[in-house]
Amino acid sequence: MAEHSITRTPVGRRPGRYVLRAVVTAYLFLLVAWPLYLVGRNALADGFTSLGDILTDPDVTHALRLTVVIAVTAVVINTVFGVGISILLVRYDFPGKRTLNALLDMPLSVSPIVVGLALVLVYGGREGWFGPTLEAAGFQIIFATPGMVLATVFVALPLVIREVVPVLQEIGDEQEQAARSLGANAVQTFRRITLPAIKWGVIYGVVLSLARSLGEFGAVKVVSGNVLGETRTATLVVEEKYLNFDKGGSYATAFLLALVAVACIIVVSVLRPKEDR
């Protein structure tokens, strides 16, 4: 009897539910699916020639390679520090914890272009606060790969942390304490207990960071100097080609970037059910 009443109640709400569903679908379609589809269609408008062109253009392939190098480096740095900071935030109490917590959300709220300018102010080779010192020691940060990595690390900083912190909070520290009482030191406890427990959170954070890092534009544009064949990344190529009326090339490059993002989303959705287990 109880089951009957449960299955019956939604009947009255059904029309409302369908309207809501239609609105959401239309919204996502117009905002996400259709524009992305059009990018793909434009990229493949004349078959694979545009794609072929950009993949044989040494400047573009250099940009793609540079993008991958920067993104992977940034993700590695963000993963190591992200997991470290997450553990610090969840497992330890210290003065200024709330401030640190708030600061960690800054990269999400500050425009990337501001981040780029700020980095130039600090690490700029000529007028930066710290840059001239580094330049004198032989390290060029701004207008070189390190600066672009820095900018990318900055904008993607919170992604791993925001994935890992809730997982760490949920698992609690009893398993870690149990491991300690069984003779494991800090490193053994982290490797054997904490890491397997937060594994899916870390992977999810890494995928998100990777997608964000590959697509970073504003901050990188400011600090890169945008030198063809040297410090130009894939997103900068898209802009350059678009502004130079090379629509085919810009759509093809944009399509490649979108493809990677879609691949990331597929990876995440494949991982998700395992995370729930």
């Binding site: 698992i171 009893e174 398993q175 304490q177 149990a178 491991a179 300690r180 009482s181 069984l182 003779g183 494991a184 030191n185 207990i193 397997p196 427990a197």
Partner: peptide
Amino acid sequence: LPPQKRNVGFVFQHYAAFKH
């Protein structure tokens, strides 16, 4: 001494089983 050097066995109220 840190816990791992005390050679004590500890059993928690909520088991603290290693889930994985």
